[in-house]
Write a protein that binds this DNA or RNA. Structure first.
Lengths: 225, 225
DNA sequence: GACCTATCTGAACGCTGTCCAGATCGGACA
DNA sequence: TGTCCGATCTGGACAGCGTTCAGATAGGTC
């Protein structure tokens, strides 16, 4: 019963940007709830994202969400899923706009970290959900929007990993590194260093440059390993 | 009332700390609260770590902690601080036991990630507090217990970073990478890969090997940069 | 012995997630 | 067209949360 509601909601979310289908007597509430959640996330931060607040923001009683999501976690999951999709888009855009395949891997990393910094509350929810479930969300796994893009970019850059396992490990290392930097760039201790380097993005690029795998040196490293 | 049981609980004290600050008329409650917090963290996980649960576990009313900590956050901070101290110890131990300075940097990374995996709930609280405050906690910053050890290990390994800035960036990159891996190793997607590589630690070492900076290649990378 | 102050309790407030009985309405079927 | 089923929403309730506050208690000092 609950599963049906979820699949219906997932299906309806696809074309939601242009058309708003209103199949039920108060409109597309699940969609409205996710939107309300994102609004709260942006304006009041992740700690204010309570189920009741979301219902309030959507103009609905506190019990209403339970007809569309099993519990609070599932609602947050829907919000996070939207975030992952947008992060995937940002990465794809960065890859497409990269001046050459050689630097695409770095640009992916920068785009990833930039997304996390521009949407800190959303990124936090995204990873909190992932860590709770001990699983990368679907959108992050899919090749078009996730880790797969790193592998493609590495191969496009002309690298030839010895084995499929090598390629996988590189992807994982890149993903972990990007996540680690994304969560820590905001620390106050780095402010002086950022200023010294001419801004946060310059700082991020400098850190990435000292990490190795995201700095365009992929092929060298693989041949050495 | 079960006064005996309560006083017995209060009497249970850790021998870890050197000095016990001020035992007032019900014993060293702030110490007992931190201990209770850690016990809950280990047995019931981070979501169960409520202030009321901690007070209950310590055999005290829900309002009592407010005479020792400003709010819940400050109590959690105290728990986290203990975690950072222990993580620092683990890193120092790994460095001391490393067969050679050349591999010490890798061993530090492995020890860091191992600590996070052995104490997942504690590590989570540690980083949640750090991210909330946008600051690395004191113990992580101090040279004896934190990032400083990475710099020392890199220099001891015979690397000669061109500038002080390079050394700082390497430290930051290493710290971010270790954190990223620590948070993601647990994901279910990697289980097959772990098995294939002969266990989680082998997997961690393999990922680190594809990251570069933590793999003992520090000096090469600096000279190239 | 009296007093001061730090410490602890019990009760209260408003908030949270979640569940339930009942009201309401859309759409299928007669 | 009329009836009815089931999905949807409401209001109220419950336990638990963080936090505050007046009042009880006890250690240390004079």
């Amino acid at each position: 019963m609950a599963d049906d509601a979820i699949t219906a909601q997932r299906a309806s979310r696809r074309s939601a940007s242009t058309e708003t289908p209103k199949p039920y007597h108060h409109g597309d509430l699940s969609r409205a709830l996710v939107d309300a959640g994102r609004r709260i996330l942006e304006t009041e931060g992740p700690d204010a994202l309570s189920l009741r607040a979301v219902a309030r923001e959507a103009g609905v009683s506190p019990a209403a969400p339970y007809h569309h999501f099993k519990d609070k976690g599932e609602l947050l999951d829907a919000v996070a899923a939207e975030g992952w999709r947008e992060l995937g888009d940002a990465i794809a855009r960065a890859r497409a706009e990269a001046p050459s395949p050689a630097v695409a891997v770095t640009e992916i990393g920068v785009a990833y970290i930039r997304f996390a910094r521009v949407n800190p509350a959303l990124y936090r929810i995204m990873y909190r959900m992932a860590c709770d479930r001990k699983t990368m969300p679907e959108h992050a796994r899919k090749a078009e929007g996730g880790v797969g893009q790193v592998a493609e970019a590495i191969l496009a850059a002309g690298a030839h990993p010895a084995t499929e396992l090598d390629l996988q490990l590189i992807q994982i290392a890149a993903w972990c590194t990007a996540h680690g930097i994304a969560e820590m760039v905001g620390f106050k201790e780095f402010e002086e260093l950022k200023e010294q380097l001419g801004g946060e993005e310059a700082f991020v690029r400098a850190v990435l440059g000292h990490v190795g795998i995201l700095s365009g040196r992929a092929s060298e490293m693989i041949q050495q390993g």
